[in-house]
C-alpha cells in the first residue's frame, strides 16, 4: 500500500493538470481580495453593510476545481490507456483505488485548507475595522464553517474519483459532479413547498452550513439535519461513489 501511495503521489505531481486545477482553485484568494477591497470601499461610503463572506461566496469555485482534480486522477488513466499498465503493476484493484483516494484526499484537503485560511485572513486584514457583516465574529466561531467547507471540497473530489472510476469518462464524471454541486441544488430550490425544504438540505453543498449549525438560506431556512447527521451524510456521498467505482473497477475488464 505504501509503495502504491508513493506511486500515486508522483502520478499526481508529475502532470500539469494538477497544477492547473489547484491554480484555478487558488483564484478564490484573488477573488477574496477583490471582494474585500470592494466591500470596504462600500463600507467607507455607507458606514456599515451586510455582505457575504468571500470564503463562503467563492467556495463553489474551490469545490468544482478540486473535484476536477479528483475526476482526472482516474479518467486520464482510461483516456490514455495507462490504466492497463497501472493495473499490471498493481493487480489488486482495491489497493489501486484506495491509494488514489488517499492521495486525492490529502492533496485536496491541504489545498482547500490553505486556500480558505488565506482567503479568510487576508480578507479580514483588508477590511480592518469596517463593519461589513461577516467580520464581527471571532475566528473560533467561524472555524466550524471553515472546516466543513474544506471537508466538502475533499468529499466532492472523492465523489469525482469514484464516479470517474464508474463512468471512465472525463466529460461524464465532470458532468455528474456539476449536477451534484450546481444543478440539483438549483432545481431543489424551486420544488413546490414543502418538498424544497425536504430535499434541498440533503444535497451536498447544503450540508456545509448544517454541519456548522448555520442557516441554509432565506428561502430554505435552517435545514432539518443536526450537525452530526449532516456530517455523516456528507461522508456518505464519497463512500457511495467510491463503492460504485470499486464495483465497476473490480467487475469490468480494464
Amino acid at each position: 500500500m505504501k509503495a502504491t501511495l508513493s506511486s500515486e503521489w508522483l502520478k499526481l505531481r508529475s502532470v500539469a493538470s494538477t497544477y492547473h486545477a489547484i491554480g484555478t482553485a487558488a483564484m478564490t484568494m484573488v477573488l477574496g481580495v477583490v471582494w474585500a477591497l470592494y466591500v470596504s470601499a462600500l463600507a467607507e461610503d455607507r458606514g456599515s453593510l451586510r455582505a457575504a463572506a468571500p470564503e463562503q461566496g467563492f467556495l463553489p469555485l474551490l469545490q468544482i476545481s478540486l473535484a476536477v482534480l479528483g475526476v482526472l486522477a482516474i479518467t486520464t488513466e482510461y483516456a490514455t490507456g495507462m490504466i492497463r499498465t497501472s493495473l499490471t503493476t498493481v493487480p489488486k484493484r482495491s489497493t489501486f483505488l484506495l491509494a488514489k483516494a488517499g492521495i486525492v484526499a490529502i492533496a485536496t484537503f491541504t489545498a482547500a485548507l490553505s486556500i480558505l485560511l488565506v482567503t479568510y485572513s487576508v480578507s479580514r486584514l483588508i477590511i480592518g475595522g469596517h463593519q461589513v457583516g461577516f467580520n464581527d465574529s471571532a475566528f473560533t466561531d467561524d472555524l466550524p464553517m471553515l472546516l466543513a467547507s474544506v471537508l466538502s471540497v475533499t468529499c466532492l473530489a472523492l465523489v469525482g474519483l469514484g464516479l470517474g472510476a464508474a463512468i471512465r469518462s472525463t466529460a461524464g464524471a465532470i458532468l455528474s459532479v456539476v449536477a451534484l454541486l450546481f444543478v440539483l441544488p438549483g432545481a431543489a430550490n424551486y420544488l413546490p413547498p414543502p418538498w424544497n425544504t425536504r430535499v434541498a438540505p440533503l444535497l451536498l453543498p447544503n450540508l456545509v452550513p448544517q454541519i456548522a449549525d448555520q442557516r441554509l438560506s432565506s428561502r430554505l431556512g435552517d435545514g432539518f439535519l443536526s450537525p452530526p447527521a449532516a456530517l455523516a451524510l456528507l461522508l456518505a456521498y464519497p463512500l457511495i461513489a467510491l463503492a460504485l467505482g470499486y464495483y465497476v473497477l473490480k467487475r469490468r475488464d480494464a
Binding site: 509503495a3 508513493s6 506511486s7 508522483l10 502520478k11 508529475s14 493538470s17 499498465t85 503493476t89
Partner: peptide, 24 residues
C-alpha cells in the same frame, strides 16, 4: 501491450518512476 498507452504530459523518467515505485 500498447506503446501509446502513456500519459503524454509526463516525462519518460517520471512515467517509469511511477510504475517502478508500485513494486518498490
Amino acid at each position: 501491450l500498447d506503446a501509446n498507452a502513456v500519459h503524454g504530459g509526463r516525462s519518460a523518467y517520471n512515467h517509469l518512476l511511477c510504475l517502478a515505485r508500485t513494486n518498490g
